[in-house]
């Protein structure tokens, strides 16, 4: 009983800054202000069912998915290298991956802007080598690049932590029973690392689908994602009702994908996937 009291500061904090704001968002999303006060309405949600907005949602999900897949393809081998015997003692590689996470996302994204500029460092080097310039700033490609760059550590670290905990003798047992490297990976290492893969996917997909900084800076505002749309409603249009409705939709999207992920995670543990 006494120990539970120790949680009270956090509970107060949580109620003030998480529960109450969420309820407010929910409240704004289903009400509109009239002369005599607030009136219940579904108009904000109905407004969303418009090809323009559906497209925004679709684009957000698509770019986040692409980034997640690229993160997985880059991050898994990296995690495997980190977890391998040769590197596990050398902390430098691990530091290099974790270090950028300590810097502000805004800073890192601005850095990419200067790198990718028409007369930026990358293009200067390319023209010096007499190669055609890379003109991807303010395109989808730059947004994906920014997402992959910013969220890659979130893919690497959970996979690394699962891989490094796999009992070496289990891998040896698989070799002993006749599995070559590929079979051992496919039948033992990968299935055992699925929980890490799942949490990596979740941890990359969630921030990617909700980002507005990366898309605004590297997409130049031309490629609006759902995060930008919400930002606009609150900061420029002042349409809190619609903004709240969009937020609720996004939250439902996140909850749904989390639900899917946790389902696969359990199945992965049972080996049913393979």
């Amino acid at each position: 009983m006494k120990r539970q009291w120790l949680a009270s500061p956090y509970i107060v904090w949580m109620i003030m800054f998480i529960v109450v704001p969420m309820l407010l968002v929910l409240f704004y999303s289903v009400t509109e202000q009239t002369a005599d006060g607030y009136r219940f309405t579904f108009d904000h949600f109905r407004r969303f069912v418009d090809p323009i907005y559906i497209n925004v949602l679709f684009r957000s999900v698509a770019l986040a998915l692409i980034s997640t897949v690229i993160c997985l393809l880059l991050g898994y081998p990296m995690a495997a290298i980190l977890a391998s015997k040769e590197y596990s003692r050398k902390k430098i590689l691990y530091m290099l991956i974790v270090l950028p996470m300590w810097m502000n996302i805004l800073l890192r994204t601005y850095a990419w802007m200067t790198l990718l500029e028409r007369n930026g460092i990358i293009n200067t080097i390319l023209s010096f080598l007499r190669l055609p310039p890379l003109d991807i700033l303010y395109t989808n490609k730059a947004v994906v690049l920014g997402m992959v760059y910013n969220f890659l550590p979130f893919m690497i670290l959970p996979i690394y932590s699962v891989l490094s905990k796999i009992d070496e003798s289990v891998i040896e047992a698989a070799q002993d029973l006749g599995g070559n490297s590929f079979t051992v990976f496919r039948r033992v290492i990968f299935p055992l690392s699925l929980p890490g893969v799942m949490s990596g996917i979740t941890m990359v997909f969630m921030p990617a689908v909700t980002t507005f900084v990366i898309s605004r800076l590297l997409g130049g505002g031309q490629f609006t994602l759902i995060g930008n749309l919400i930002e606009q409603q609150f900061l420029s249009s002042g349409d809190w009702g619609f903004g709240s409705a969009l937020s609720v939709i996004m939250m439902l999207l996140i909850l749904a994908s989390m639900g899917i992920m946790s389902k696969y995670e359990q199945e992965g543990g049972g080996g049913a996937l393979w």
Binding site: D167, S169, E172, A173, L177, G178, N180
Partner: peptide, 16 residues
């Protein structure tokens, strides 16, 4: 190891 005609029972069993 995977081509050898020997099999091993590991100390901590190492079951999958």
């Amino acid at each position: 190891a995977y081509k050898r005609k020997v099999n091993t029972v590991f100390q901590k069993y190492a079951l999958f």
